[in-house]
Amino acid sequence: MSLPDGVSRHDFDGTTSIATRGHPEYGERTDGEWRRWDPHRSKLGAMLELGMETGLTADQTTLYLGAAAGTTVSHVADFGGPTYAVEFAPRPTRDLLDVAERRSNLFPLLKDARKPETYAHVVEPVDVLVQDVATRGQGRVATLNRQFLADDGYLLAAIKARSEDVTADPEDVFDEVLADIDAAYDVVATERLTPYHDDHLGVVARPER
């Protein structure tokens, strides 16, 4: 598996895990300047840990949708370039502000990912679009935000089955969401995020040409 520069496998007291260098944010284990990128706490971390080919490299420009308290986006900003973090719930955004205070390349935005016109005046075209919104209509959020992604960029999405329909078979839900994503992207890889996250699908896709 290829890890982006700035992300590395590191040993934390006997647990080998991916890690980045930066200020710890959520009680993760640390060793010197390295801090564990806990795949149990982060879906993007799980995608990397599972060896999915993400196309991530150092210093990319990233738009992150569903940043919550900043657990994952803190790692992304540690090795990435300018990182735009969109979250629409005020409470987690307070914590996100602390994370962003310590990272001059992390730009927090209290916005709704279903309304890209409210942040298109701030966000430049990006190399990577990360999506972890855990809400109904995850496929639509991906297509609405396609406009931010450079033609050679990557969509890295974590799809939560239960956010669409708690009763349906997750496989059916994933098929429906993937059909939505297909309208604007070419899906290049999908993988269930077990054992780190139940009923989640990791998706790697490229903009359709």
Partner: peptide, 13 residues
């Protein structure tokens, strides 16, 4: 941009 997004988001929250 960092200063402006921090101020804007703090106020919005």
């Amino acid at each position: 941009l960092h200063a402006a997004t921090m101020t804007a988001t703090r106020a919005a929250v």
